[in-house]
Design a protein around this nucleic acid. Structure first.
Lengths: 138, 138
DNA sequence: TTCACTGCAAAAAGTTTGCACTGAG
DNA sequence: CTCAGTGCAAACTTTTTGCAGTGAA
């Protein structure tokens, strides 16, 4: 975790207990929580924390590159910033990850076609998760 | 345009002047307007139209499959429902399209990896558009 | 000591809803 | 004639902001 705290300081941010708590939660949760979910969870071990601090902190952590924001509504966050992409269940909103090594090639193709300089991508697939598919058949 | 109107009726929806006006705008605009932009534009030729009618209509057109909603914040809409994907400029929010025939293969790969049944995808790349790139250098 | 951060409350931004009236079919 | 659609206003959800007090460095 020290690595993350150093990253904050390097960018000129202070290491407050609130940030530490939120960062710790983000590092340990396997899911893709919303700000609301982060708030609810973190409130258990840090009862006085406010909603806006959660929002501000998530934005700060994102700026430093420690977490990533997924553009759903509401936004979702994850501390796994490595190369992977998401599938979202249209029925239960469960999110799973998948990997795809050739994404870099697609990105180059996009730059060639559009003349944009690509900095980030959000590749989302939507469908029915295994659980919902089996329920569907019943 | 008759094709679109028939699609509405086929789904049991009535063809009102409001829907006709919005559909006509969506068909002719080359961009990816927000609900607000659709409202502002359509209001010029249909001054009495309300914001909620625009929202309701966009949702209806989407349900019938005549338009597609892009999950940005705010949502954006386009009548081009054919196979293409988007690049968004991080600086000016300009949206451009790109095509990529092997998307189907990636979708199959995703289904294999996750065991989801994929129904839709939203592939978005983010970066700097040609215009903003040249301004950046100055 | 200092100024970035917190907590609170209020506002903003985007979207949805309830309801009485209207007009498409 | 009937009921889906409209316009209006109000509610709701998600996110942002202003500000006085607090505590990390």
């Amino acid at each position: 975790m020290d690595e993350e705290f150093r990253a904050l300081r390097r960018h000129g941010y202070r290491l407050t207990p609130q940030r530490e708590t939120i960062m710790k939660f983000m590092k340990t949760t396997p899911g893709h929580p919303t700000a609301e979910e982060v708030f609810s969870y973190v409130k258990q071990s840090f009862p006085s924390i406010s909603f806006s601090t959660v929002y501000n902190t998530l934005r700060t952590l994102k700026k430093v590159g420690l977490i990533r924001e997924l553009a759903y509504n509401p936004s979702r966050f994850e501390s796994n910033v490595g190369d992977h992409y998401h599938v979202v269940c249209l029925n239960c909103n469960h999110i799973a990850n998948f990997i795809w090594p050739s994404m870099k090639e697609l990105q180059e193709e996009v730059e060639k076609q559009t003349n944009f300089r690509i900095a980030a991508q959000d590749v989302g697939f939507f469908g029915l998760c295994p659980g919902c598919r089996s329920k569907e058949k019943e």
